[in-house]
């Protein structure tokens, strides 16, 4: 859950990139580090990898200030996708304010996507997140590969779901920023009322997104 510190004029938000192993969560974060131009951007912290696979998590901190001088800090995490690291996934997911589900578009990975999504909903329940109302977007990554599900198929399959869909090629950086902007939009709509972002801090939705992503989008 977000931390709202009235005294130090600071709001901390936690966003998590979830998804099956090797779907491109770390790549998303790396690209965001390169592409985003917020007021404050920390260095990317990559925790202990083994053969380039995430063991703990990756972390990218971002920050912006509202017109009223309130500091908003966003901590972007990835979870380890491999099935064995479920406890770590659960710990990283706990108290998340928003989730990007990164799916692998390859037809051969459909089952892994479904299992990971199931795992996300189970872990969300375990750590006390309301899966139904939690801000989330779904990204179908690796659009540059052959043997992938078509956009029509994906749209058809997900059309009854409430989450916005994005298509990306994270390695080239395509769609990465758009996905993240989509999450920021959903996030703003969820927390605006709670923290009176617009009313008290004079921060509109587009200003929030622009503040985090930078003016280049």
């Amino acid at each position: 859950m977000s931390e709202y510190d009235e005294l130090n004029k600071k709001l901390t938000l936690k966003l998590v990139f979830y998804g099956p192993a090797l779907s491109g969560k770390t790549t998303n974060l790396t690209r965001l580090h390169d592409l985003l131009d917020p007021e404050l951007k920390g260095e990317m912290m990559i925790l202990e990898t083994k053969n380039d696979r995430t063991l703990f998590f990756d972390l990218l901190p971002l920050g912006m200030t509202t017109p009223t001088g309130f500091f908003i800090k966003l901590k972007l995490f990835t979870v380890p996708g491999q099935v064995a690291h479920d406890s770590t996934r659960k710990a990283v997911l706990s108290r998340a304010d928003g989730v990007v589900f990164v799916a692998d578009s390859q037809i051969s990975q459909s089952i892994n996507n479904a299992e990971s999504f199931q795992n996300l909903s189970e872990n969300a329940a375990r750590v006390g997140l309301d899966f139904e109302t939690m801000p989330m977007v779904v990204q179908f990554n690796k659009r540059d590969l052959p043997d992938i599900q078509t956009e029509e198929e994906v749209n058809q399959r997900w059309k009854s779901m409430p989450w916005e869909l994005f298509f990306s090629c994270a390695l080239q950086g395509d769609g990465v920023k758009e996905t993240f902007a989509g999450l920021l939009k959903a996030l703003y709509r969820k927390i605006n009322a709670d923290y009176k972002l617009e009313q008290e801090h004079q921060l509109t939705e587009s200003e929030f997104i622009e503040g985090v992503i930078g003016k280049s989008l």
């Binding site: 912290m45 925790l47 202990e48 703990f56 998590f57 406890s87 770590t88 659960k90 710990a91």
Partner: peptide, 24 residues
């Protein structure tokens, strides 16, 4: 300090997962 953050985060997360695994 950055390396200290890394170390503390990793070790705390490790403790958290070990405890959760132990509980399971």
């Amino acid at each position: 300090l950055k390396s200290s953050i890394r170390y503390l985060m990793a070790s705390d997360l490790h403790l958290q997962t070990v405890q959760s695994d132990y509980h399971d």
